[in-house]
């Protein structure tokens, strides 16, 4: 049976994730924006968009608690850019802590727009190492991208821009500060769905 991967569809580039997932074959992608749509998902992606908008709408429409319940169930979750901001443990703007409660899926501080505003946005080669000894180059698209700092002990880096971690993992939660969904490369989507297959086996 195809695995059901939800993409939070309240705002942002969610259709790009859905299109990428559809290319993988063994996955049935689903856009979710109602509180009762989270239960039968095998995994969830929080896409790029505006993190302030996400936070406000999640709270206003009772979706925040549903995502927390999803996290507590241990199912895989992945946040790209604004999605990573929502899933971190501390949010900073220009080094000052922001009055927004993140969902704490990954023990890391995130500085919003840490790489600058839109005029500073860029593409760059990201070195990813998704299996021991197997590193590859991925085209990282960084748009008003957040920056990770204060990684917790249990947090593993899987991708780097120069020396700086830009793709990190904590248990079943994955964060990327860049946008794999804007490229044609399905490597990271495949990796995420692979985690899901592992998680399912553990349950069985």
């Amino acid at each position: 049976m195809a695995m059901i991967v939800g993409v939070l569809g309240i705002q942002g580039a969610y259709t790009r994730h859905v299109e990428m997932l559809a290319r993988l074959g063994n996955v049935s992608p689903r856009t979710v924006r109602f509180a009762d749509e989270f239960d039968d998902l095998d995994a969830l992606i929080i896409p790029g968009g505006e993190s302030t908008t996400f936070t406000i709408l999640l709270e206003r429409w009772g979706l925040r608690d549903r995502i927390i319940a999803f996290l507590n169930s241990g199912r895989p979750i992945w946040g790209t850019c604004a999605g990573a901001v929502v899933l971190c443990s501390r949010i900073l703007d220009r080094n000052k802590e922001v009055d927004i409660k993140p969902l704490c899926a990954v023990d890391v501080a995130v500085e919003r727009n840490g790489f600058g505003r839109q005029v500073d946005s860029f593409e760059a080669d990201v070195k990813i190492e998704l299996a021991p000894g197997g590193s590859a180059i991925f085209n990282g698209v960084f748009i008003r991208a957040p920056r990770f700092s204060e990684l917790g002990k249990a947090v593993k880096a899987l991708g780097w821009l120069g020396q700086e971690p830009v793709m990190i993992e904590h248990g079943n939660a994955l964060l990327t500060s860049f946008h794999p969904e804007l490229t044609d490369d399905t490597t990271i989507h495949r990796y995420f769905v692979g985690k899901l297959a592992d998680a399912k086996e553990e349950v069985v």
């Binding site: 569809g9 309240i10 705002q11 942002g12 580039a13 969610y14 259709t15 790009r16 790029g48 968009g49 505006e50 908008t53 850019c81 604004a82 840490g114 790489f115 600058g116 839109q118 005029v119 500073d120 946005s121 860029f122 593409e123 760059a124 080669d125 698209v141 960084f142 748009i143 008003r144 920056r147 821009l161 120069g162 020396q163 700086e164 946008h179 804007l182 490229t183």
Partner: peptide, 27 residues
């Protein structure tokens, strides 16, 4: 403030510009 160390960055590409517009969708 690119802060990306020695890594070569490609700014103002088509993907970076249209990508920003993509992030504003549904808003």
């Amino acid at each position: 403030m690119s802060g990306s160390g020695n890594t070569d960055t490609r700014k103002a590409t088509y993907l970076v510009k249209v990508g920003h517009a993509e992030m504003l969708k549904g808003g």
